[in-house]
Write a protein that binds this DNA or RNA. Structure first.
Lengths: 135, 135
DNA sequence: GTAAGTACGCACATAAAGGTAAGTACCCAT
DNA sequence: ATGGGTACTTACCTTTATGTGCGTACTTAC
């Protein structure tokens, strides 16, 4: 068994086997961790970038202006750990690793992209509506 | 003028007036701050909760299991600052404040809700695909 | 030769996020 | 009169995220 958490709604008689869905409003629901990874500072960007196709580590690094190698690696591990990203390493001399989205990853990616797109497209209105930050 | 940032793509001759859209992949684009607020730990939950209608501060606090008053207040300020949340305070003796979404807020809220829903609905598959976290 | 690129892991350091506890000013139920 | 609820703020402290710099083991370009 992979996982088993009471915060995940289940309908079957056994607590373990069949949970139906998570509940983000529940304090310890594991869905909160998934959300955290997906909405992490670089998680969003990585998912959107990978929707555009397979990328190598340094391609992602260059595309995502501002990420440090450390955080990119960390973010990719989170996403890989959640089953959203697939990592394929070639045993060649100068390292060569390719990252791509899994079917599940493509699904979240689309949701995330929709949000990202909305923000990018509405930035003008948002900035117009913003009240200048105090500090 | 409210805002004026070179990272926001613009088409007009003047640098200031007409930007078209933000670019999350650009290092200093203000869209990243908006994204940060919206995807902050409690930001997502607050937006989703408010999609369900106006809420008072303590209603939100109770609904969002685990938030501290401090962070809820902070999150609401961020969202209010971005023009997504409207705050209405009644000058009554025991404080009474109501929070609701602005039209803009309702739009992002829907995007965020779509993501949240997807995660909640697919938690079972995600957990099945997860590789057990090391640390 | 020499520098740069590749995909990280590791140790160190800081900033930011988030939590805890206490205070405010006043009303209402017990 | 005593305690709880309301909406926060402020001070203080811990945790987490994220950044910086170094090392690696070679290869290719200059």
């Amino acid at each position: 068994m992979r996982n088993d958490n009471p915060q995940v709604a289940e309908a079957s008689s056994t607590l373990s086997a069949k949970m139906r869905r998570g509940d983000l409003f529940a304090e310890k629901c594991p869905s909160r961790d998934v959300l955290k990874h997906v909405t992490s500072r670089w998680g969003v960007l990585v998912l959107v970038a990978l929707l555009g196709g397979t990328h190598r580590f340094s391609d992602l690094r260059r595309k995502t202006a501002g990420v440090s190698e450390r955080m990119l690696a960390q973010t990719l591990k989170w996403l890989e750990g959640d089953g959203f990203v697939a990592r394929k390493a070639y045993p060649v001399v100068p390292p060569h690793v390719e990252y791509s989205l899994t079917p599940l990853g493509r699904e979240v990616g689309l949701k995330v992209e929709a949000l990202a797109d909305w923000i990018e497209g509405n930035l003008p209105q948002i900035m117009a509506a913003q009240i200048p930050p105090e500090s």
